[in-house]
């Protein structure tokens, strides 16, 4: 290797060094800034929290103590509403009370029934979101809607639906309607319309427009062009986004349930706050199992629909 560089090479070398120095400086400033922000954030969060982090840390696993049931079979009994040997008339051990009787003998255990209710909330909301999102997406896509006003209105409308905090929608409908699943359906569907509509119209905008042009030349109306030129192309992607949204909505409807929207979320919050260990564990197991099952099922179906395309989960 030559020790002495030519003039040109020396200039290049100097530039390289200068660049490296600026880059290092930027990295240093960026990194230092980040550390300061993180430290300040942590101090702020610690101050704002009810329990201080380092004071509470030794008791971190205390909550698990409340969870340990008297007997691990209790978890099963709680899940399937079987009578408990510890039943002392209190709410804590009175599992059969929650049975949802189909006939005199046949019943659906309370938690499973509530889990199904949550799943149904999620499915219905996703269906509503998809139906409205479907229509809106064609109105918002640049290639299908030449009228900028309609497009703009459709897009802004979906943006507002998406950005509106779902707690507020749920809370508003809880105030107007009764307690129960309907506010949750409203909140989750309204958000789904915005989110799915956005995903859908991006799919539509990326669609191949040659078939559409062919049908325009045939004299097809707007609806016919959508039906025959675009729907066959976009449907697999729509279905895939539908499934993805369903996964997200199962979680969302559980959470909304916990703030008063019915379903399993509400029961989970109640049983945690009342310290019913066996009940909490059985709900957590049920919820965990359902979410895993829904995720796996939807991933499998999506793979079949659109191949190995990985989608970024979106909220």
């Amino acid at each position: 290797m030559p020790n002495r560089l030519s003039d040109r090479a020396a200039i290049i070398e100097r530039h390289w060094r200068e660049q490296a120095r600026t880059r290092r400086l930027y990295t240093l400033i960026g990194g230092g800034g980040l550390i300061v922000v993180v430290a300040l954030s942590l101090v702020f969060a610690n101050e704002a929290n009810a329990g201080k982090f380092f004071e509470r840390l030794p008791f971190f696993f205390d909550f698990t103590k409340d969870l340990v049931p008297r007997d691990w079979l209790e978890v099963l009994r709680a899940m399937f509403d079987l009578p408990s040997p510890y039943d002392d008339g209190s709410l804590k051990y009175n599992y059969p009370e929650g049975r949802y009787l189909v006939t005199a003998d046949l019943y659906i255990p309370e938690y499973i029934e509530k889990m199904l209710e949550t799943l149904n909330i999620a499915l219905l909301s996703t269906v509503i979101g998809a139906l409205f999102g479907f229509v809106l997406s064609f109105l918002a896509a640049r290639n299908m809607m030449p009228n900028a006003l309609v497009r703009g209105v459709a897009r802004r409308f979906m943006e507002i639906l998406r950005a509106f905090p779902d707690v507020v929608i749920a809370g508003f409908f809880l105030a107007v309607l009764t307690l129960g699943p309907i506010p949750a359906i409203m909140a989750v569907s309204i958000h789904s319309i915005g989110a799915l509509g956005k995903m859908f119209f991006e799919v539509v905008e990326n669609a191949d427009m040659r078939p559409e042009e062919g049908l325009r030349a045939v004299g097809g109306s707007w609806i016919e062009r959508v039906r025959f030129a675009l729907v066959p192309q976009v449907l697999p992607n729509f279905a895939s986004y539908f499934l993805l949204r369903f996964e997200i909505n199962v979680r969302a409807s559980t959470i909304i349930g916990a703030v008063g929207g019915g379903g399993i979320g509400e029961l989970l919050r109640l049983s945690i706050s009342q310290g019913h260990g066996a009940k909490t564990i059985s709900i957590v197991i049920l919820l965990f199992g359902t979410i895993v099952a829904v995720d796996q099922f939807s991933a499998w179906l999506r793979r079949r629909l659109v191949g190995g395309d990985a989608f970024l989960p979106a909220t």
């Binding site: 969060a45 704002a48 009810a50 329990g51 982090f53 509470r56 989970l268 957590v284």
Partner: peptide, 16 residues
């Protein structure tokens, strides 16, 4: 949701 409910019990309500 579940994590949040657990941690609220551990640390009390707040950003932590």
């Amino acid at each position: 949701l579940i994590w949040a409910l657990f941690f609220t019990r551990a640390f009390g309500p707040g950003p932590i």
